[in-house]
């Protein structure tokens, strides 16, 4: 049995006059014990999808199941089995770390002690601050506490809606390490994020944009589908370089990517020499150009422009 199945889900908002389609015929499966990422920018439909799966919203079309239960008819069974961390989830700011955790444990008919082994690794980092109010915690700490609260009843499937948004790079890294260790305990995890670089930490990802899924696969396979050669180029004047490369006749696509610009050529056969000549002719200095490995963000850009 799949942990999550989604078939042709459609979700629309708004009045009859103006409807916005948040999810447009979305289908996907999440296997048991899988760490599945839903990757896309704000407004892509990630939160709508999560709310439908956590039985908080009704879809306008399609079917979905979580742990074998239908999200519409059997929502009560689902609610007992899942853990959910909504986006911008901020806990009770005026309750202490321990009070928050105990509250959620009791609400889910369990106790901290009963499931302590599951959250131990995470909670141990919070324990020194357990009497501190949640509002006084840092972003990273809050997020760990929120995760503990979502886990405390030992859910079968864990839904994390943008858990790393607005969190600094160090805390993000730690958070993903925690997810990996949870995965080892057999919990299926669905996580959404706008950060493309987090895709590579998932078993499989769905790239979503404007309510449509553009690709579902393992990150490696998605990258493999990027068949064209990709070059990374830099020079002393990066902005002028970008403009010049975008003007170049054989350029299919060129965009900034960290310290380099990524360049895809219309005709791969020509190779890099004509590009170098072109740039030298435009008196660029310190030109560097080499083949680069595309990553998920390149694939996302590629899929977006199709």
């Amino acid at each position: 049995m799949q942990a999550v199945t989604v078939e042709h889900i459609v979700k629309k908002y708004g009045s009859k006059k103006e409807t916005v389609t948040a999810l447009d015929d979305v289908s996907l499966d999440v296997a048991q014990g899988e760490l599945f990422g839903v990757i896309g920018p704000d407004g892509a439909g990630k939160t709508s999808l999560f709310r439908i799966l956590t039985t908080l919203l009704l879809a306008d079309g399609g079917h979905a199941t979580v742990d074998g239960f239908d999200v519409v008819k059997q929502y009560k069974q689902i609610r007992n089995r899942i853990g959910y961390m909504p986006g911008k989830f901020s806990l009770y700011q005026d309750l202490s770390v321990e009070e928050n955790l105990r509250f959620f444990a009791t609400i889910f008919n369990t106790s901290i002690e009963a499931n302590y082994d599951l959250i131990k690794d995470i909670y141990i980092q919070l324990e020194p601050f357990k009497t501190r109010r949640a509002g006084k915690l840092s972003g990273g700490m809050k997020q760990k506490l929120a995760l503990c609260c979502a886990l405390i009843h030992r859910p079968v499937v864990l839904f994390l809606d943008e858990p790393t948004t607005g969190v600094d790079a160090v805390s993000r890294k730690e958070f993903w390490e925690m997810l990996k260790s949870l995965k080892k305990q057999g919990i299926s995890i669905l996580v959404s994020t706008p950060y493309m670089d987090e895709a590579e930490l998932c078993d499989r990802v769905a790239l979503i944009q404007s309510g449509k899924i553009m690709s579902i696969d393992s990150p490696q396979s998605i990258i493999k589908k990027f068949t064209k050669k990709m070059w990374s180029v830099r020079s002393a004047e990066m902005f002028r370089l970008l403009n010049d490369l975008q003007q170049y006749s054989n350029t299919e696509k060129c965009y900034a990517f960290g310290e380099f610009h990524h360049l895809v050529l219309k005709n791969d056969a020509e190779g890099m020499d004509p590009v170098m000549h072109y740039l030298e002719h435009l008196s660029h200095l310190e030109i560097e150009m080499q083949l680069a490995k595309p990553n998920i963000e390149d694939c996302f850009i590629e899929l977006m422009s199709q």
Binding site: G40, D42, A44, T165, G166, P194, Q209, Y255, M304
Partner: peptide
């Protein structure tokens, strides 16, 4: 943090 949550093309 002007570009939080923005898609990769718009970000560029």
């Amino acid at each position: 943090e002007p570009t939080g949550g923005v898609d990769p093309i718009t970000r560029r």
